[in-house]
Nucleic acid binder design. Sequence first.
RNA 1: GCCGCGUUGGUCAAGAGGUUAAGACGCCUCCCUUUCACGGAGGAAUCACGGGUUCGAGUCCCGUACGUGGUACCA
Length: 508
Amino acid sequence: MKNSVRVRFAPSPTGGLHLGGVRTALFNYLFAKKHQGSFIIRVEDTDQTRFVDGAEDYIFNCLDWVGMKTDESPKQPGPYAPYRQSERKPMYRQYAEQLVTQGNAYYAFDTTEELETMRNSLKTSENPSPQYDHKTRMQMRNSLSLSDEEVKALLDANIPYVIRIKMSENESVHFTDLIRGEISHDSSVVDDKVLLKSDGMPTYHLAVVVDDHLMKITHVFRGEEWLPSAPIQIMLYKYLGWESDMPKWAHLPLILKPDGNGKLSKRDGERLGFPVFAMDWTDPKTEIVNKGFKEMGFLPEAFINMLAMLGWSSGTEQEIFSLDELENLFSIERVNKSGAKFDYEKAKWFNQQHLLRADSSRLAILTKPFMENAGIEIEDLSKLENAIKMVTERCHLLTDFVEQAGFLFKAPQDLDVTPIKAKWNEDKTNLMQEWLKAFDTISWETDSLENSLTDLATQHQIKKGEVMLPLRIMLVGGKFGPGVFDIAHFIGMEDTKQRVLQGLELLK
RNA sequence: GCCGCGUUGGUCAAGAGGUUAAGACGCCUCCCUUUCACGGAGGAAUCACGGGUUCGAGUCCCGUACGUGGUACCA
């Protein structure tokens, strides 16, 4: 018998999938897997004005990249299809109407202007945002304040209307949050939220309750920003008579900007120079490309690991986890209550750790495009793999391989010899030239290369250390990289000769 | 304004009444290394504040401050 845990991630395709979104998806996913349940994607495309072309596919691409497999989704419908709210449109009205009949909701005919007028006229410094609630509803144009005849006339005349929930007064609405414990609200401070918009589409509050109930969702994990709207949804479960199988809830802490305070936004990424989207996201309206973690050179498992540790911890000292391990260890109770500031430095450290653990042949495949992007053609993947093995520990991102290993495939351009030129002399030039000649007599191995240079240096009465850095700069183009003789060994005799000769030329 | 939620080093965090208050990132010092890293050793740095409860409070309760979210026909 299959475990009946069913959790859903409900992205709204309004553009991109940022850190917070991926982490919400991740925690939902991990919980589902931990309990051998189903991970369901239900797309919240209820707001036609904010819907963005391609955004839905983009979301699925991101989930694919990080390896979160879905059990039911618009692409893979399960028993409760459809999985897109726009396609479920006809289902919502009946419940809204049912609430009106029961007296738990009502028709409201107020225009945008009328609402604005109400809010402006009631606005005081004490109360900067007046609500449509039990205090004001009787002054507005709705089926509560109007007579039945008036309502019928308006309905017959096809005057647009919305359906609003009639929130009860002085009722304590409480529930248990899996992360935060007992939460309670006073229903009097909650306003009469719109349930069904004038275009017939449900708002989030109605859609989420109806869909979760119909799709038999057992657990709802979402961002903390939804906490204030919980009482509305709880009241809906109650009014609709679904209270007994209301899902369990948990409100996840927010991901905050690294500097200062507040929710992390995509602007922070641009400002501080790090990605906030999982993958590159091109806004079709502005054509602005928002950088993604994937394209910045992150491994999906590192991205996931980093995100998981932002708000959750195992309680042990272990910090590096694979997706499999997370699926086994995750527990919603161990999620933190407070928001976490995003730290890009630590994110890169996670990537380095996973780079070190990753299979080098896979890294070669992933690195190739970055190399070629930088104008370094890779013909032999196994050669790239060997190069990667030499430098992995000094890389944080896949893109770092370009700098750290690129010179193994392409001689450095624009050598800067100024730092070594002052101390250079003819003796050293001679030494280097003799070393090049010695190549014909030695075996092309790291040790013999080093030994021959050591011997020659002794003969010339030059300290080996004095030519090591210059040699490195000739071969690498800078003060970095693996051992010089390993590099010479890797690039081969011809390349080594050419690079040294070119360097000597510049030192003349 | 009102309502909700939160508060352990710079950051992520462990901690569920008695601990020298873990660990990680970052920072600093040293070792290793004729580069840069990796690795190793060490260091600086924390329980927001005030009241209770208790023999004893980072841990429980209340208040304050601060932060944050909500207060839309957006999600």
